[in-house]
């Protein structure tokens, strides 16, 4: 731990993926660190999804192709992925709002409470929306 802190201090002026790993393992403010990390991770994942999504829109040129395209994504596994997508969007959106609120009003004093607020909101939205997405696939068949 101590060694990592020193190494990250030495290489502070030269950010790189290795430096990032050292910093991540030595960082003590877990809330801020995980907010930043999750924001970047969900952001990059959403860009990957966006590219696939836009390319899939080509099927709109042919009604039959579009129906087949949509049916592919009605597979139960894709429905779980859809709930994860909702979670990523929700976290990225709420955390983005947190960043804006922090910049405008709080600087860093309230960042931990705000981050926990982000987590709670993300959890609630993902739970409610995710359940309604997977309901016909996983929950309705289990009901008597």
């Amino acid at each position: 731990m101590q060694e990592n802190i020193e190494r990250s201090g030495q290489s502070r002026n030269r950010p790189s993926f290795r430096t990032f790993l050292f910093t991540a393992s030595s960082y003590r403010k877990l809330a801020g660190m995980s907010a930043w990390l999750l924001h970047r991770f969900t952001g990059l994942a959403l860009v990957a999804y966006l590219v696939l999504h836009i390319m899939g829109l080509r099927s709109l040129a042919d009604p039959a192709a579009f129906e087949i395209y949509v049916t592919t994504y009605r597979n139960p596994l894709f429905k779980i992925a859809e709930a994860i997508l909702l979670g990523s969007v929700a976290f990225h959106a709420f955390n983005g709002v947190r960043i804006m609120i922090q910049d405008a009003f709080y600087r860093s004093e309230r960042q931990r409470q705000l981050f926990y607020g982000v987590l709670v909101l993300t959890f609630v939205v993902t739970l409610v929306g995710g359940l309604s997405i997977i309901f016909p696939y996983f929950i309705a068949p289990m009901l008597p």
């Binding site: 009604p63 039959a64 579009f66 129906e67 087949i68 049916t71 016909p136 696939y137 309705a140």
Partner: peptide
């Protein structure tokens, strides 16, 4: 669609187009 176009009838026969489950909401053209 299955009764009007051969393309759709084939897709339904192959399972590329599936019926909706009860309670499901589907994006459609």
């Amino acid at each position: 669609l299955g009764s009007t176009g051969q393309e759709f009838a084939d897709a339904i026969a192959e399972g590329a187009l599936k019926e909706a489950l009860p309670g499901e909401h589907v994006i459609t053209y």
